[in-house]
């Protein structure tokens, strides 16, 4: 679990009908820890009976200790975290925020950085751009969104010949083949957005012969809702119900089961949990376990993954 700070919301600004920007500051205006481009924080939301914790990329200047900013897209079909942010949080609200953690850092060895964002996946790149500016490193940013309603980044991006925006509703599409051709040797590619965009970029890069070490991705993942299911804890024999709008991790936390976590998006590996018995199918929604590990069904990432079947017993 991360170290946390109690911060106050000082600004709530709708960027588009779907996406809202929130600014957090220390109640006594104390400086906050500075951070590195691509870092995220975990925001705690006391949503009725449930304590939600969602990870959001920081979009503000990493060198600015006066406040943290995030942009949240309202997900009507999500578990409820983004709806809580949009409906319950106003200037003056105090919220617990973790210290920044970075799972999507720039590789400073790169001779050039190519940033590819889809939809709300623009958020980590907003702090990357500040860091690139500080380091004076060459880059180009390609930003695709379905519609202007979704394209929250438009308001936050500087005007630059190195920033290219494609709105698919307006008939513009990102040409990955062209982006990935003719880049200088030593270029690194970073992609953040929906699964489809990430796999398209990684596939295209593989076809064009890019080395794996030059490719970086961060799925914009929050735990998907699903059908309710039951888990049994091997050590205590307890059974815990996971509701449709809860992740397994949230259900374990609600039941006061101690479990380590950090990113809550299936990327950092901290909440990896051993499965003692599994009669059914684990829906692995994480990016941590390997293909083989998924097939074995002996481990699960409770922050993201769900279960369907007769019985799931965790080694807890």
């Amino acid at each position: 679990m991360s170290k946390q700070m109690m911060l106050e919301v000082t600004e709530v600004e709708p960027l588009t009908p779907l996406v809202t920007r929130f600014r957090f500051e220390h109640p006594e205006k104390a400086p906050l820890p500075i951070f590195s481009g691509g870092a995220h924080v975990v925001v705690e939301m006391p949503d009725g009976e449930m304590l939600r914790r969602n990870a959001y990329s920081l979009i503000s200047d990493p060198n600015d200790a006066s406040g943290y900013e995030i942009a949240v897209r309202r997900e009507e079909t999500g578990r409820g975290g983004s709806r809580y942010m949009h409906s319950e949080v106003t200037p003056g609200t105090r919220m617990r925020i973790s210290v920044p953690t970075n799972l999507f850092a720039l590789d400073p060895r790169a001779r050039k950085h190519v940033l590819i964002a889809g939809g709300i996946g623009i958020t980590p790149f907003l702090s990357h751009l500040r860091q690139l500016d500080l380091l004076q490193q060459p880059f180009e940013l390609h930003y695709a969104a379905r519609s202007r309603d979704e394209a929250a980044g438009l308001k936050l991006l500087p005007k630059s010949a190195r920033i290219h925006v494609q709105i698919s509703d307006e008939g513009n599409r990102m040409d990955l083949g062209e982006i990935l051709t003719d880049q200088p040797i030593g270029t690194h590619v970073y992609v953040c957005g929906p699964e489809g965009l990430i796999s398209a970029v990684l596939d295209a890069a593989a076809r064009h012969g890019w080395p794996k070490g030059a490719l970086h991705s961060e799925a914009f993942a929050s735990p998907p809702p699903g059908k309710p299911f039951t888990v049994t804890l091997a050590k205590s024999g307890r059974t815990i119900e996971v509701s449709a709008s809860q992740s397994l991790l949230e259900a374990l936390e609600a039941a006061k089961v101690e479990i380590d976590w950090s990113c809550r998006g299936g990327a950092c590996g901290r909440c990896e949990t051993k499965v003692a018995a599994c009669d059914g199918q684990i829906e692995h929604n994480d990016h941590w376990l390997s293909r083989d590990e998924r097939a074995e069904q002996k481990k699960i990432m409770p922050c993201m993954s769900r279960f369907t079947g007769a019985a799931l017993v965790l080694d807890l």
């Binding site: 991360s2 973790s98 950090s262 950092c268 590996g269």
Partner: peptide, 11 residues
Amino acid sequence: LKFLLAMQQGQ
């Protein structure tokens, strides 16, 4: 290594 990679600033 796992411990170090999980280390956060301020800790």
